[in-house]
Design a protein around this nucleic acid. Structure first.
Lengths: 209, 209
DNA sequence: CTGCAAACTTGCAGTGACTGCAAAAACCTC
DNA sequence: GAGGTTTTTGCAGTCACTGCAAGTTTGCAG
């Protein structure tokens, strides 16, 4: 093995994966998601179509490029939070940390994705369909912290709320350039945290509030 | 036009749609969703494949059989709720009413769908991808009642919470026969209403509640 | 450096969802 | 029943996605 811990092979794999993700997002933003074929994406990334499907289970997945390690990473963050932290708060922080990291690493990709998602909001919903095992993992972590049995609604609900918050935040983000995605997700999670029976106040743009 | 307001044509259309939905659910429950082709479904319902796609945009849609009138109906219920009712409560009641109706009209179909969704939970998520305009409609109704602008996060979030509640409730429902789906959705919405920072108490099975 | 095994890539053939189009059939109105 | 409107259908075609059986590249040990 290499002393760096990352072999030539590993490096190549990461580069290929990134190239495919990048090609998908770029082409989709450029000429519309369904005017791009997998064949074109593969060509752009200089691999065969078959290889595309070795990396991503679907075209959708390549567009969002969900990091397969994100689930475990977030679960770890939840279980290792300090003792006094509530389950919801632990989850909230883990989501926000993940988003911040992601935006720092690939802000440009997200700006392109925004273009695509503005025209096809359903793609974002579909993207979450593939993340069932991650949700399972997170729900288990939340459940453990809450001291609730596997079967209880609450942990699942917290995680589903996270997806919903992210989804709504992105939709809203796509409408207006002057907000940070992380802030929007945070705001959405706060609303879920304090309860939807409370209608939030209406912030006026020009107001000094 | 017919005095009944529903012509032969209309009746046939409704019957065909129902037959396709039924065939999809039945076959999928019987031998697994992806071991059923649209060709087989169409044959079962005695129509051509092309006709299947005149009724449903996708196989997924036929499995869930989302009533296209459900969105407008729910929106109407929200806007026409009594004056003192909060936006969230109005939404909550509209969701519960819709589910009660649906279960009364097609409980058998839902029992079969349960079988399918137990093995492929992702199908439920995907089903919501197609209901973007309905969500839009509901969000507008909630927003109006809350006196918030179109662009605000809150209405979208309420509606997304509804989807999430439904999704989690169905997942939970599929695990255990002794609960009513309506109750689970109600419970989930209550948690969203009062806020996820509050960890709910753990109900023991043997309780007499 | 060589040879071997494991991992990765590729082509190919095939399945099945989904679409547009134009002709045929069914229905509705008068 | 003629004539206009919908609905159904068949057909040809595109594209996502899969399994399989080579081919190629990389890792490693001798």
């Amino acid at each position: 093995m290499n002393q760096s811990g990352e072999s030539l092979r590993d490096r190549k794999k990461r580069r290929t994966r990134a190239a495919l993700e990048r090609a998908t997002v770029r082409l989709a933003a450029e000429r519309g998601y369904d005017h791009v074929t997998v064949e074109e994406i593969a060509a752009e990334a200089d691999v065969s179509v078959r290889t595309f499907f070795n990396y991503f289970a679907s075209k959708d997945e390549a567009l969002i490029g969900a990091d397969p390690e994100a689930g475990p990473r977030m679960a770890e963050r939840i279980t290792s939070a300090a003792d006094g932290v509530s389950p919801f708060e632990a989850y909230r922080q883990s989501v926000l940390a993940e988003i911040t990291d992601e935006l720092n690493n690939a802000r440009d990709l997200w700006l392109l994705r925004k273009e695509v998602l503005m025209q096809r909001p359903d793609l974002l919903v579909r993207a979450f369909a593939n993340s069932a095992e991650s949700e399972q993992l997170l729900a288990a972590a939340v459940g453990e912290r809450a001291g609730l049995p596997e079967s209880h609604l609450y942990p699942r609900l917290v995680v589903a709320a996270g997806s919903a918050a992210f989804r709504c935040a992105v939709t809203r983000w796509a409408l207006d350039d002057n907000v940070a995605l992380g802030d929007l997700v945070g705001e959405a999670l706060d609303l879920f945290g304090t309860g939807l029976v409370h209608v939030p106040p209406h912030h006026h743009e020009g107001g000094t509030s």
